[in-house]
Each structure stands twice: as C-alpha cells, then as structure tokens.
C-alpha cells in the first residue's frame, strides 16, 4: 500500500431516472492486484466499472485511474486501461487478424498482437470472421483487444458468462497469466467460484452500495455460519443444550440428524459435550462456509 492505487473510486454516485444505481461506492485497487466486484444482477457493478472506463459520467464522487480522470483525461486513460465490455460485439465480417491489427493501430505503442494471439489460442482462427467464432473464441478475442494497447490495468466485465465450464477454467488461467505479466485486473463477476479462485480482494456490491470489502477468506469468515457441523447422535440430544454452546448461530434437527452453524469454537464445544455425555456422533462432518454463504448473508438483508 505504499504506491498510489491504480484505480481509486471515492463516493461514486450515479442515478438513472431518479433511481440511484450506484450510491456512494468507494474502493481502491492496488498495482498488480486482481480486484473483484461481486454482486447480484442489477447491483450497480457494471455502472461502477463503466464510470472507471469513462463510458459514463458520475453524478457525484471521484474516479481516478493512475491518477487521471477517465472523463476529462479520456485519451490518457484509454491508453493505460484496456476494457472488455459486457455484451459488446465486433463487425460481423471482420476477421480476427483484422480486428487485432485495427485495434493495435489505435494505440501509440501497442503490444505485438502475434504473441498475444498465440497466448490466447487464436492463431488458428486469424482468418475467421468474428460472426463465425464460438462464444469462447469471441471472449478470448475481446481479452486480446483489451490487452493490445499494452495497458497497466484491464477491466473485465462478466467475462465468463455464457462459457462452458471448460472454457471458463481456461479463461481463469488466462487472467492469472495477465496478472503474472504485471497487469492490474478489475474483474466484475457474479460467479462465486470465479471470485474465490482469482481475486485478491473482493468488493461485494448490493443495491448500489459496498456491502463488504475483504479478501475471499475474510468474507467467508464473516458468514453467519462460518463453520457447519453435522452429525447423527447415538441418543437424542436436547436442542437447548446445543443452542447454549459457545458461538452457536443456528441449530437444526431433522430426522435425527443435527446441523449446527457456528465457528471453530463451536466445533470444540460440541466434541467436548458429546464426550462428556458419552454420545457417539455418527457421520460427523465439519465443513467451512463458502463464498456463496457469505455472499447470501451479505446481500440478503434487504430482501
């Protein structure tokens, strides 16, 4: 945190037709980070990154990309920021090679598109027209176009939506690769697995506000039930005894099987209790909460 953040958003607000879509969002993305923006549909994720890309003019707040204003210094920002937009296309009859050459011509000192195409597995498709590419190939081309200006930061919006699991995993490796090359990544997603695997830090946005900003592990630890313990006791247990245990958040008893939500502390207490009462716990399972659980806890409040 010694150097200046690559992206700095402070008190960002944007409304459409009187409805606040982004309502006071602040975050900073450090150099070399993969920073995730996670949130349900319509939470304001895309609007937020569109303000970062200079595609929208904020109603209030401050956005800086490498210290520059994306609207006032559009040209300078467009040279350091590469963008992959949600739902954007290219000219149907443009070939992959032509697209790469065209976009390379937009930048004063572009990356060489040949190795880029090779890294993205597009070499065999250079003469194919955009309209004939598969979803995965289109996305890889868009990543290539986002990187062609040799940017310091790339914004990837819903990159893996509509990809099959295989293509999605390949794309994740690409993103890790991009970061390994020193490029900062701002990643918008609604896939938990993607965010958990890739992101160093995640801002969870809900209804235009940041509900939480932490590392994936930190977010999981915030879940109401960070740890779940389930077992079938050899003799029935009193639910009140269980609820009285330290750090227990929830108790559920279904067909003789007990599920407790809590923390590590709860695990120890349950084992002690069982040992003291000489009860055997059949099929004892201790599982950690996932980012899904944390996400639902964080974004479910108003619903």
């Amino acid at each position: 945190m010694t150097s200046e953040p690559v992206i700095e958003v402070t008190g960002l607000r944007k409304s459409y037709g009187g409805r606040a879509v982004v309502d006071g969002v602040s975050f900073a993305v450090e150099e070399g980070e993969i920073f995730g923006i996670l949130g349900p549909n319509g939470a304001g994720k895309t609007t937020t990154v569109e303000c970062v890309e200079g595609l929208r003019i904020p109603d209030a707040g401050r956005v800086r990309v490498t210290g520059l204003d994306p609207v006032a210094d559009h040209d300078a920002v467009s040279r350091v920021l590469g963008a992959q937009l949600q739902e954007s296309e290219l000219q149907e009859k443009l070939t992959v090679r032509e697209a790469l050459e065209l976009y390379a011509a937009f930048y004063p000192s572009p990356a060489d598109w040949r190795p880029l195409a090779e890294r993205l597995g597009l070499t065999g498709k250079l003469d194919s027209r955009f309209g004939k590419l598969s979803g995965g190939q289109k996305q890889r081309l868009f990543i290539a176009l986002a990187l062609i200006g040799d940017p310091r930061v790339v914004v990837l919006d819903e990159l893996t939506s509509g990809l099959d699991p295989r293509a999605r995993r390949d794309t994740w490796e690409l993103i890790e690769d991009i970061r390994a090359n020193g490029v900062t990544v701002l990643l918008v997603t609604h896939f938990m697995e993607e965010a958990q695997r890739l992101c160093d830090r995640i801002a969870v946005i809900d209804q235009g506000r940041i509900a939480a900003l932490d590392t994936p592990r930190g977010l999981i630890a915030r879940a109401t039930n960070a740890t779940l313990i389930s077992f079938t006791p050899s003799v029935p247990l009193d639910e009140r005894d269980l609820a009285a245990l330290p750090a227990v958040a929830s108790v559920e008893c279904k067909e003789g099987r007990i599920t407790l939500g809590g923390t590590d502390e709860t695990v120890n207490a349950v084992i002690t209790l069982l040992a003291r009462q000489r009860i055997t716990a059949h099929q004892l399972r201790v599982t950690d909460a996932t980012l899904d659980d944390a996400f639902l806890d964080l974004t479910g409040v108003a619903r």
């Binding site: 890309e53 200079g54 595609l55 040209d75 467009s78 040279r79 920021l81 590469g82 963008a83 937009l85 739902e87 954007s88 296309e89 290219l90 000219q91 976009y103 937009f106 930048y107 004063p108 176009l145 200006g149």
Partner: peptide, 16 residues
C-alpha cells in the same frame, strides 16, 4: 447496427 451491437461503445474505450 454498430451502435446496437456495442461496437461504438467498445471503440470509445480506446484512444480512437
């Protein structure tokens, strides 16, 4: 068509 398909938008994120 270019506007509808986001081609103009895509281009607005470049120096052109």
């Amino acid at each position: 068509g270019y506007r509808e398909r986001g081609i103009l938008r895509r281009m607005s994120t470049t120096p052109v």
